[in-house]
Design a protein around this nucleic acid. Sequence first.
DNA 1: ACTTACGTTAACGTAAACGTCAAGTAGCGG
DNA 2: CCGCTACTTGACGTTTACGTTAACGTAAGT
Lengths: 128, 128
Amino acid sequence: MTDERTWSIAELADEFGVTLRTIRFYEEQGLLTPARNGTRRIFADGDRVRLGLVLRGKRLGFPLEEIKKIIGMYDAEPGEVGQLRYLVDQIEHRRAELEQRRRDIDATLSDLAELERRCRADLDRLTG
Amino acid sequence: MTDERTWSIAELADEFGVTLRTIRFYEEQGLLTPARNGTRRIFADGDRVRLGLVLRGKRLGFPLEEIKKIIGMYDAEPGEVGQLRYLVDQIEHRRAELEQRRRDIDATLSDLAELERRCRADLDRLTG
DNA sequence: ACTTACGTTAACGTAAACGTCAAGTAGCGG
DNA sequence: CCGCTACTTGACGTTTACGTTAACGTAAGT
């Protein structure tokens, strides 16, 4: 059976290390769509997962608008053939983008490694 | 001999696909420090490299302030032992950050691959 | 001398992603 | 009923990273 547990806004904020304002803002932007009990927001497991995806996107430096599109791809209905082709196309696009990022990261890591090597050499020289 | 070629602001902007305003802004923020001929900016090879580093940092989603610190590490003087230790520390910090990013990228790529697999399966089913 | 190209500073405008009050509501223990 | 706690919706403020005029200088081509 599916996990029936739910969370309050404060619980989620606490768990993910964000503020209440942030979560409300994400809902306002259509990134989250929690249920309601009266006016109170009720977060189900799916909402939790989505928040995780949003924050992962943020760590990657994507703007929220981009993140929204990416997450949107996850829960798109199969729909018709044209939509599916379009979606596959989008996926390719994102993949290329991410692979470029990984190259940038690797280049930077390589630069940092070289820098660290030089630093350690200097340290060895200075401290004997 | 070192490459003595220089560039105008427009040449650099063109080469890197940014606006003049962007380059001027980067100078204002201390990310670039081109020489001058009167009021005109003269960019040497080092300035070009720095601009490349700035833009790579941007592709990675770092704010300019962070980028400034990172680039600052590249051309820090060896200096004293304490500074070197601090620098090595900083490098470690950045490295950890970047490695987290790479994990996020790999996770996302994996998600996208799974998504694409499902899309292609749907397409196969629909188109025979 | 006039235009065109290329450059300059100064200053105001803008969009994103929240922070930060302010003012109100809803439930619960005492 | 009182006060506390957790929650709500505005609404304005803030920072970052530039865009966008405005107003001007300079040097070359015709």
